[in-house]
Amino acid sequence: MVETLVLIEHDRRQVKRPSLHAITLAQQLGGEYALLVLGHGLDEIAASLVSYGAAAVIVADDPALAEPLADRYATVIAEVARKRGTKTLLGTSSTFSKDVLPRAAALLDAPMVTDVLAIEEMDGSIAYRRPINAGSMLATVKVEGDRRVLTARATAFEAPAANVAVCPTERFLFDAASLPNGVQFISREQRASERPDLTESRVVVSGGRPLRDPETFERLVGGLADALGGAVGATRAAVDAGMAPNDYQIGQTGKVVAPELYIALGISGAIQHLAGIKDSRIIVAINKDPDAPIFQIATYGLVGDLHQIVPQLIESIRRG
């Protein structure tokens, strides 16, 4: 029996680093934990997971799982959890885990807590702290029942340390033919980017509506990000206006980031956006409106026209 099962996410080539952060929550919960990875052709990915202190790495490897289709994945995950007597099924918050885990929770007849930031001991049981209302409030919740499903905010938990001890890898066997077949994968937009992943990058530069068009956005936001070796993000307004693709969106309904350095260009600072950035260590805001709310949370604020300031900044960074 493993107390906790941690769902690990990958992109077929490697593990997505933020998904490891849930391991830290598993360690805080105590007891034995196993890592679970689903897909096809997982040998290398599974091998990269053996040194995170787990009791086992459980691998569900089958052509039927080549694409992360929620109905199949949830079925397999629930089956693993049931067979292993799992009390806590856990993943890191992402569109992958948010697609699959609530469905698995329903199959397990278990309640679920999304976006756990921290746990605390309360009257002998565990309570979970999570953001609500776009992060403007924190709720402390408890759950009943023998099983629960959680997603952890990657930015709230450190990456786990790898150690020398190696755990066994176990293949989970299941009847692929009996899996649901209601969802068919058609295609995925492939956008090659040399830039680091938004949720993993040390530096994030992001832009809002005043960037005006995709070219200016790329030249200024992309240019500054490249000068710093960082990732590019955007506000909902910039994405809605077609300046940046949807997966650049940061905020309540997009990605949550917590880099060492976050640079906000032409971002006024709606709470829905701030929800996605406020755990960044250093926030720099450049905006021409001196009353923009972003300045209330920025470590360093510079009032002025970003179309003039950003080229100077890029130049200054390049000079070293």
Partner: peptide, 13 residues
Amino acid sequence: RETDGGLEIVAIN
């Protein structure tokens, strides 16, 4: 679908 990795297209019964 809008996913963390970009757009994904699926067909559902």
